[in-house]
């Protein structure tokens, strides 16, 4: 499904702020993998997701998505294959457009956009059905501007938009970090439900070790731009928070936000 071969990325090369964010990293994802990624600040978790999404190009290495080499494709070209939800709930939706307009934009992800009307009548019914799954009452507010929604509502909508056209890979970049615990739980459960229902392959970056253990079938721990732990299946199920803490300690990468989570 996804093959990452020896990718490296250095920010601000040859300067005092030089930062090797990804260090010769390789990783292969299988169809249907739901991978949670943990690691300290600056471990390279979000950088890995951005490398896949094409926010910038990697310095070296190769990224192959379902047999398509996307290494040199621009961000909007890769969007065809990817569903994305960002940490900032404001980031994934267009605030001054209506809910149904946002959904219509997402429904055309990767498709050619021409001069036909932005929303087809038959799409609306589909949108209403999908919005009902969120249980937020948004199905009655199709023409409301997204800017009027709360952070949690916007994140749920972004999630729906990311999966409306089944993506080859779903990228979740700490998408519940900015939400209150209760809303975070709702969005996480929704995430799991959508991934299961559409049998998606997904990457989920998280700061929360409990979530990393609870969700997904595979767990990756990163440190200094490298993968230092990669467990899946039964082995992951056996893993405990203490195991993870020990590993963090070994790598001298224990910070408050991780301990407190």
């Amino acid at each position: 499904m996804l093959q990452i071969k020896n990718i490296s990325k250095t920010f601000n090369p040859n300067s005092i702020n030089e930062k090797r964010a990804l260090n010769n990293l390789s990783l292969t994802l299988n169809d249907g993998d739901f991978v949670t990624i943990i690691g300290g600040n600056g471990a390279g978790k979000s950088t890995l997701l951005n490398a896949i999404a094409g926010t910038w190009f990697v310095d070296s290495g190769q990224i192959i998505l379902d047999e398509v080499d996307v290494t040199n494709l621009a961000e909007h070209q890769r969007a065809k294959f990817l569903g994305r939800v960002f940490q900032d709930p404001m980031m994934g939706t267009a605030a001054n457009m209506q809910i149904e307009e946002n959904l219509a934009l997402a429904n055309r992800r990767g498709a050619k956009r021409g001069l036909s009307w932005q929303i087809k009548p038959e799409e609306k019914q589909h949108f209403i059905e999908m919005l009902k799954l969120l249980n937020l009452g948004l199905e009655n507010r199709l023409t409301s501007k997204v800017g009027l929604l709360s952070g949690g509502q916007r994140q749920a909508l972004t999630l729906l938009m990311a999966t409306l056209q089944k993506p080859k890979l779903l990228l979740l970049d700490e998408h519940t970090a900015a939400l209150d615990p209760k809303t975070a739980k709702i969005v996480l459960d929704l995430t799991e439900e959508l991934i299961k229902k559409n049998s998606l392959t997904a990457f989920m970056v998280t700061h929360n070790m409990r979530d990393a253990l609870k969700y997904g079938n595979r767990l990756i721990m990163m440190n200094e731009g490298k993968i230092i732990l990669d467990v899946s299946g039964k082995e992951k199920e056996k893993l405990t928070i203490n195991d993870l803490l020990e590993l963090f300690n070994e790598n001298g990468e224990l910070n408050d936000s991780i301990v407190l989570s």
Binding site: H76, A94, R109, L115
Partner: peptide, 27 residues
């Protein structure tokens, strides 16, 4: 025009570039 797919892609670009890119829009 701004009700068409192309027009709404322009509006999305003006509203949120990151979102537009994530939806495959060439901003």
């Amino acid at each position: 025009f701004f009700g068409t797919e192309l027009g709404s892609a322009i509006r999305a670009t003006g509203s949120n570039e990151q979102m537009a890119k994530a939806q495959g829009i060439n901003i």
